[in-house]
């Protein structure tokens, strides 16, 4: 059949202008010495990458990013499955209401989520409750690293667990009813059913794998929540602060370009991050059975 290639032209033009062109230029910039104050480009080869890879601030940001990525993706995966099980085992009306409530965080701008989960909002309330309301004489000290890393992970899971819930609910619905009924007839307990039927189906589902991959790729560029925490912790002017993910670090470097910062290093960092994105997308395309049909 004759393919209407003309139909693809507008999309391709946008792809080239907004994605491939800029990425290519970023790559060229990353191989040169360049700053906004002095916009002449001198090729320096991989010098930017080398100095980046020998910079402890960069490695620190990588560590923070990895910690947050795996922490939050793992947590939202678990919480998502838990929510999906709750939803699918409830009656029609409860299901409709509660799943509507559970998906709300997805709709909220991530920057607002940064505000919601800030020490001055949620934890201000919670601490007041703990300290005075319940007279426990104790409160959650959000300035401790373990605490604020946990909160960032928690707030990312707060946004994205519902996505895993949605995907998992679809997977559970696709399990043949006969399988579960057969198990019930044979006297299987709820836990056995989960262990032997539901959980293996969830784990084996390409949809879940693809969601995990995409969420991992998304978490690598995580910006708004750690960015807001820079302000809550008063670290916004400190390069390589404890909550600097790679993206936040790039933002700080970018903001300081005013002081003639070697801006090409930012693009080098972005290109390294891009490698993660491109790899994950390739895996998604390979694992998703239906995308290329």
């Amino acid at each position: 059949m004759r393919v209407p290639y003309l139909f693809l032209v507008p999309a391709l033009v946008i792809i080239f202008l907004a994605l491939i062109g800029p990425v290519f230029q970023s790559f060229l910039l990353s191989l040169s010495e360049f700053s906004l104050v002095n916009p002449s480009q001198t090729p320096v080869g991989f010098q930017n990458y080398i100095s980046l890879l020998s910079d402890s601030v960069f490695w620190r940001a990588i560590q923070v990013t990895l910690l947050l990525v795996f922490g939050s993706v793992f947590l939202e995966f678990i919480v998502g499955i838990f929510l999906a099980l709750l939803i699918t085992s409830s009656g029609q009306r409860a299901r409709t209401w509660f799943s509507s409530i559970f998906v709300i965080p997805i709709a909220i701008a991530p920057i607002v989520t940064g505000v919601l989960w800030s020490p001055n909002s949620f934890f201000d309330d919670l601490n007041t409750l703990l300290y005075y309301g319940l007279s426990l004489g104790t409160y959650i000290d959000t300035s401790k690293p373990f605490t604020y890393y946990s909160i960032i992970v928690l707030s990312d899971a707060w946004i994205w667990a519902p996505l895993f819930m949605l995907v998992t609910v679809a997977v559970i619905r696709s399990i043949p009813k006969e399988q579960i009924e057969a198990a019930e007839v044979m006297g299987a307990s709820s836990f056995t059913k989960f262990q032997k039927i539901t959980f293996p189906a969830i784990i084996a589902s390409p949809a879940i794998v693809v969601t995990l991959l995409l969420r991992t790729a998304d978490a690598f560029r995580m910006f708004e929540v750690p960015y807001s925490w820079n302000f809550w912790l008063g670290q916004d002017s400190q390069l390589g602060a404890p909550v600097d993910t790679v993206s936040v670090l790039m933002w700080k470097m970018f903001s300081s370009t005013l002081y003639d910062f070697p801006i090409a290093q930012i693009t080098a960092m972005a290109i390294l991050l891009l490698a993660v994105t491109l790899t994950t997308c390739a895996l998604v395309l390979r694992r998703s059975s239906s995308l290329l049909d």
């Binding site: 062109g21 230029q25 910039l29 560029r221 997308c281 395309l285």
Partner: peptide, 27 residues
């Protein structure tokens, strides 16, 4: 349709969705 370049376009769209803004911001 199935056609040559379909994988490329799909991949480009996936990458576009997933890319870190910093990879295109400076240009």
């Amino acid at each position: 349709y199935k056609f040559r370049g379909k994988a490329f376009i799909t991949y480009a769209l996936l990458a576009m969705r997933t890319i870190s803004p910093f990879a295109v911001l400076l240009p």
